[in-house]
Amino acid sequence: MIELNFTDFVVRAQEDDTDDDVDVEGEETGVTDEGGEEEEAVEKPTGSPDADTIILFTKPAVAPGTNLELPAGDLVEFLVGFRNKGPEDFVLETLDASFRYPMDFNFYIQNFSTLAYERPVKPGQEATLSYSFIPAEAFAGRPFGLSINLRYRDLNGRQFYEGVYNETVNIVEIDEGLDGETFFLYVLLGACVVLLLVVGQQFLYSVGKKRVGGGGGGTTHKRHVETGTANHNDVDYEWLPKETLQSLSE
């Protein structure tokens, strides 16, 4: 009875401690922190001392000594190398990657699929796993904690969950010189300008014509008095072909 009470007290004390931490961090992150605590209780990454893992980003290529910058909306590829240094076989089970909140790696932002490999690695052997993912385009311009974890087991059934990569990466926006959308926007704008010019020209032309026609129209109209076919002199022969005119004048 006494023991039970004691453990109860310890648990409560721990809870109090964590609650205090949350309060110190601030109200906004309080909710996320509580969510993260449950995740932490489920898994704690540990690797086998007989295993040696290494990661290499092949796309984009990483310059030495710089922070990893991943282009948003573009494919990212990396290789994970595994070397078995121990006397027993290992079986590589899964590899998963996720973006975490950089201030608190227990808070997940984007989870990528867990790939199952099930590949045995004999003692002294090496194996390479490849994995690729695309960071969401909405994440451009912000840092995220990238966490890549490898799960493997030995022949005794002991499972290991090793963090291969756990660092803050920057998601950068790729600025394409000219994408299709803006190109066609400019084409549309150009078409509008041309259309306006044509309409303007037509308008000016018609206005000019009216003014010229209106100025002399009064007098010319008065002169036109219908005389039927009596007057042969003002017959307009212009519309007739030349051959016909010639034959007429003969």
């Binding site: 290494i54 290499l56 990483v62 030495p64 290789l79 090496e126 390479t128 490849s130």
Partner: peptide, 20 residues
């Protein structure tokens, strides 16, 4: 050429092989 931070302290080659 691609320079990488080598995490291993001993001077030995190590290959990662991708098959695509």
């Amino acid at each position: 050429f691609q320079t990488l931070k080598a995490e291993e302290s001993d001077a030995s080659g190590r290959l990662l092989v991708s098959k695509q």
